[in-house]
Amino acid sequence: MSSPSIGAEAHEESDSPQSKESVWRTAWQNNKGAILILLAEISGSSMDAMARFLQQGENKFHPFQVIFARMGITFILSSVYMWWTQVPDFPFGARGVRGWLILRASFGFFGLYCLYYSVHYLPLAEATVFRFLVPIVTAWACSVFLGQVFTRKELIAGLVALVGVIIIAHPPWIFGEVNDEIHPNRKSEVDEVTPTQRFVAIVVSVLGVLGASGAYTTIRVIGDRAHALMSVNYFALLATASSAIALLVIPGIGFQNPQGAREWILLIAMGVFGFVLQFLLTAGLQLDKSSKATSMLYTQILFALAFDWAIWGVLPGGWSLFGGAIVICSTLWSTLQKPHAPMEKKREPDEESALLGAQTEGSEEVGRRASMSA
Rank of each mutant, 00 (worst) to 15 (best):
R131M: 02
G260R: 12
E192T: 12
A306G: 11
A304R: 09
M270D: 00
R347L: 02
A215T: 04
L248F: 08
S188K: 12
A246K: 12
Q148N: 06
L315R: 14
Q56R: 09
L285F: 04
F199T: 14
F273E: 08
F199L: 13
K338D: 05
S213C: 02
G274Q: 05
S79T: 12
I245R: 10
L280P: 01
N59Y: 05
P88H: 03
A125Q: 02
L281E: 03
I219D: 12
W140L: 13
Y116K: 12
G111E: 00
A293T: 08
L302A: 15
D308L: 01
E177S: 14
G323E: 07
F273G: 04
D180G: 07
P339Q: 10
S16K: 11
E181Y: 04
V206M: 09
T335C: 10
L315C: 08
F107P: 04
E58H: 11
F107V: 02
W83R: 07
D15H: 15
I167Q: 10
V160E: 09
E21H: 10
R98N: 07
V119E: 06
N233G: 01
N179E: 14
D191C: 12
V149A: 12
F279Q: 02
S2F: 10
L159T: 05
Q148P: 03
I301M: 08
G324T: 13
A358I: 07
G223Q: 04
L287A: 04
T282P: 02
G158P: 01
V129A: 12
V276L: 07
S242E: 03
E13T: 13
W173H: 13
S106T: 08
S2N: 13
T74Y: 11
A69T: 05
D224G: 15
I253A: 09
S19Q: 14
M230E: 02
G260M: 07
P316S: 13
T360K: 09
C329H: 15
R104H: 01
V366C: 04
L112I: 09
G158S: 07
P17F: 07
S242F: 07
F199N: 05
A94Y: 06
H227M: 04
R98V: 05
G362W: 00
R25N: 14
N59P: 04
S143K: 11
R25G: 13
F90Y: 03
T240K: 06
Y81D: 00
S373Q: 11
I167M: 15
N59L: 11
I37G: 00
F132M: 07
